[in-house]
Amino acid sequence: MRTRKSAVTFNKPFVLNADVGELPPGTYDVETDEEEIGAGEYTGHRRTAVVLYVRQGGSTRSIFATPKELDSALERDKDA
């Protein structure tokens, strides 16, 4: 298992999943957990979980989502 850190930017308000509701546009820190897959000389990684960090008023909230939920939210933001 490995964790990859990155950032994502949303240009419009967005919904990551039904549990959270709408979030404001902005840049968010993201941690993605990946598990190793493969055997022999070829190895890859599959994303298994995503944590989006929402900073508001001096506090930080961790929002857990699937990689598909994050990808879908980013795609909707790009298309809108």
Rank of each mutant, 00 (worst) to 15 (best):
T43N: 09
E75T: 13
E35P: 00
P13T: 02
F10H: 06
V15H: 01
Y28L: 11
R55Q: 12
A7D: 14
L16Y: 06
R2V: 13
V50G: 07
V51C: 05
L23G: 05
G44D: 11
D77E: 09
V54G: 01
R55P: 03
R46G: 08
G57T: 11
P25I: 00
Q56S: 13
G57H: 14
I63A: 11
G38V: 03
G40Y: 00
A65D: 07
V8Q: 11
V15N: 11
S6D: 13
L16G: 11
E69T: 05
E75I: 08
S6M: 15
M1R: 03
E75G: 04
E35G: 08
T3H: 09
V51S: 05
E35N: 06
P24C: 03
E41P: 04
T60F: 00
L23P: 08
G44R: 12
L16N: 08
A39F: 10
G57V: 11
F14S: 00
D79M: 12
D19I: 02
G21T: 12
S62I: 00
A7I: 01
P13D: 01
F64E: 14
T9H: 08
V15G: 02
L74F: 07
D33G: 05
D19S: 14
E34S: 05
E41W: 06
G40I: 09
S59T: 12
P13I: 00
G57M: 10
N11Q: 15
E35Y: 06
R46A: 14
R4V: 15
T27K: 08
D29A: 12
D19K: 15
V30D: 11
K68F: 04
Q56D: 15
L16H: 12
R2C: 07
A73G: 02
F10R: 00
R46N: 10
V54F: 14
L74A: 10
L23I: 04
P13Y: 01
D29P: 05
V30T: 10
S6I: 04
R47K: 15
G40F: 01
S59K: 13
E31I: 00
